[in-house]
Design a binder for these strands. Structure first.
Lengths: 142, 142
DNA sequence: CACAAAAATGATAATGGATATCAATTTAAA
DNA sequence: TTTAAATTGATATCCATTATCATTTTTGTG
């Protein structure tokens, strides 16, 4: 919580931008969400705290959070733009139920290893990866 | 080429829809593309063959192709809707250069194996998966 | 503390991709 | 051939996101 605000502050300082109450509120509400957040949900929760904040500022600020590495675009929900936390999150992949759209996050160390192999084979320098497995969860199988 | 048209035809028959010249043209142009196609590119190439086909028909037909399993939404390019072939394609994952956006398709048998393990752990029935590795390709490293 | 310059904000207009509408055309089947 | 249903293309509409702009806020300087 503390760290993230410091990261945003120093990013803004370096870019000659300003740390404003609106930006703080938006960051805090974003951090309070687990997993993947759509802009709409984010906006609703932000307005509970400060109804004067406009949707344009939310979009602008979320783009800043992506730039400074605190958030990234989540590619799970196609219709709307959505985000997930990046900093202080252990890397995880996604198991997605195709029926109820439940999302489970998981880690598998060997997948991390094989992606290195693959990069080597094709001469790529590894950056990051995304893996999504689609299936039907226990609840929906009943 | 032949198979795909038969699949579309029988899907349309079952749904009491009709196989039209426009739908045939759109399917053929779609199949002639390798990898991931944006609607815009698809539309341009369709118009070279039949300039009277409208953009609405392209969207409508692509949705039919997704419904009958010949295509699926590609999640690589976020801005525009884009598609990739599903039928007669061996399953592959993607290696993406974050600099030039080049896409290399690869397969790794062990990844197929570990996703089964993961599904078992969480009680999911496996459906399919998607994996994307991001890095910098040889050309861009120079 | 006051003041000027730069940046941020909120309201709203503009944009652009995707979908809905509708009159005209085409198709299938009787 | 005739009729009902589906399809088409043109275009209006929708809606998420971005751009614009007048106003407000912030920062830093004297």
């Amino acid at each position: 919580m503390f760290d993230e605000i410091e990261i945003l502050k120093s990013f803004l300082r370096e870019s000659k931008l300003r740390f404003t109450p609106q930006r703080q509120t938006i960051l805090e509400v974003f951090l309070s969400h687990e997993g993947h957040v759509e802009v709409e949900d984010l906006f609703l929760n932000i307005q509970k705290i400060d109804p004067s904040i406009g949707i344009a500022t939310v979009y602008r600020t979320m783009n800043l959070l992506v730039e400074c590495g605190l958030a990234r675009d989540s590619v799970l929900l196609k219709g709307q733009q959505s985000f997930e936390k990046l900093y202080h999150q252990s890397h995880h992949d996604h198991l997605i139920c195709t029926q109820c759209e439940k999302i489970v996050e998981f880690e598998h160390p060997l997948i991390e290893k094989y992606q290195l192999e693959i990069c080597h084979t094709y001469g790529f320098t590894l950056n990051h990866h995304k893996m999504e497995i689609y299936g039907i969860c226990l609840d929906c199988q009943k």
